[in-house]
Each structure stands twice: as C-alpha cells, then as structure tokens.
Write a protein that binds this DNA or RNA. Sequence first.
DNA 1: TACTTCTTTAAGCAAATACTTAAATAATAA
DNA 2: TTATTATTTAAGTATTTGCTTAAAGAAGTA
Lengths: 123, 123
Amino acid sequence: MKLEITCTRAEANHKQLLNCMSTLASMDINFKKMSKLLSIAGNEVRLKILYLIEEEGEMCPCDLADILKMSVPAISQHIRKIKDAGIITSRRDGQTLYYSLNSDETMLFESIFKSIELIKKIA
Amino acid sequence: MKLEITCTRAEANHKQLLNCMSTLASMDINFKKMSKLLSIAGNEVRLKILYLIEEEGEMCPCDLADILKMSVPAISQHIRKIKDAGIITSRRDGQTLYYSLNSDETMLFESIFKSIELIKKIA
DNA sequence: TACTTCTTTAAGCAAATACTTAAATAATAA
DNA sequence: TTATTATTTAAGTATTTGCTTAAAGAAGTA
C-alpha cells in the first residue's frame, strides 16, 4: 500500500493517519456491505417498505402499492433492490408473493426503526 | 385522505391496510428525516468519513483526503452534504476546519458502527 | 504587499436512480 | 382453452449523484 501524504500541516499526525488507513483497509468489506445496506434503506419508499414488512411480518407488492399509493411496477422494482441486497426473501401463496425480512439483517433495521419511533415520541 | 384500494385479493385485510396507511401518515416526517440520514450514510466514502470523525473525535478535509486517497474537492463536497444534513459541525483553527459529529445524531451512527465492527468480528 | 496553504464553490459530464408505460410470466378460475 | 389476477421485466426518460478541473475565499507567513 503506497501512501501519499499531501497535507503539510504541522498538526498532521502522520502516524495517526497511517493508523486510520490500515484500520479502514482491514474493514473495507464491512464498509462496502454496510453502505450498500444503508443506501437501500436511504430511500423513503424503501424505508417504508422495510418498516411495513418488519411490522406486519410479511407483505405482498400489491398491498404495498395500495398503502404507499404507488404503481405496482415501481414497488416491484424497489423490492427487487431490497431482495438483491439479501435483506428480504419471498414465499409464494398462490398468485401472491409474500416478502419478509431475513433474520441476518433484522438487527440493524430494528435499531433504525427504534430511532424512527424515538423521533416520533420526541416530536 | 382518499383511499384507493386496488387489490382485490380475498386475503387483503382492508382494515390492516388502512391501519398501515394511517401509521405511516403519522410518521411521515420521521421517515423523511431518517431516509435522508441513511442516504447520507449510504455511500461508502461518506460512511468512512463519518466513521473516522466518530473514531477520532474530529477530522479536517485535508487529512480525510489523504486517508481516503481522494481529491480534496471530492471530500469537501461529501462533507457539505453531511453538514447540510445537520450531522456534523465545524470548528476553525487557523486555516484548518475541524468537523465533528453533532451529539443529536451520534446515537444512530454509533449503532451503525457497532454493526460494522460486529461484521468485522464475525468475518 | 505577495505568496503559500486549507478549504469551498462552480461548471461540466458520465453514471446511477426512480419513475413511467407496455409487455411478459405465473398461477388461478371459468 | 381463455380470461383474470399478481407479479416481474424491459425500455424510455428526467432527475440526481459523484466525480473532475478550474476558480475563488480565507487565513497565515515572508
């Protein structure tokens, strides 16, 4: 790993910078994975979809479209992104597909939803 | 609030749908605010910037550019987004601007970073 | 004053995003 | 089989994003 330190400030603690770099390097995959998850949740529609799925246990695209007053294809494409990120899985019952949270990812989203409801209480 | 329920499935519990809609409506501002926060953190570069600021207490654009091996303007523009979202504030020391987390927003990010480090441990 | 350093801002552009409409699957019912 | 319903996929498009380079502020130094 080649290092190019351009900052010439006297205060710049180069050891600290090198330390930060190696820490980040060792966690690079985690930052990739986490920023991907957060970018999925960082859309108002998708955050609501995730909240509804978490609250209700499972949800179908049709009901989500009704609740969020959006077109079914728009919902379906959001669901696809969430599913591709490995956050939800589907179960088929006849014509209907029910989506639910994967247990691996529930923890983070629960803490996010807790924050949302905290805002609600304070406001 | 006019409701248009297009789903004709026998299983569709309309009372449940109405309930979901009113819950979301009462929390609409929270979803806006939270999805905004998550979209800020949902970028690998910004997530690393936030992590570094949280770990080190404060950070200047110059050092962040060095650590992340990116141009200073690119970093500055990311910082602007984070600052505009009200997540960080700046303190000037001579020519250098030091950015630090606002205490209002630390809780959510701490839980996110805890999740990141958890991934680290498991992996 | 002029010069350097740290930082932000502006303009330009390629890529990604989030919708729309239309078409294609998949399962059920007549 | 045909028709209906739930869902996905594809193509098109306007907007947003994240960088680049160049220019402009802001503060310290000679």
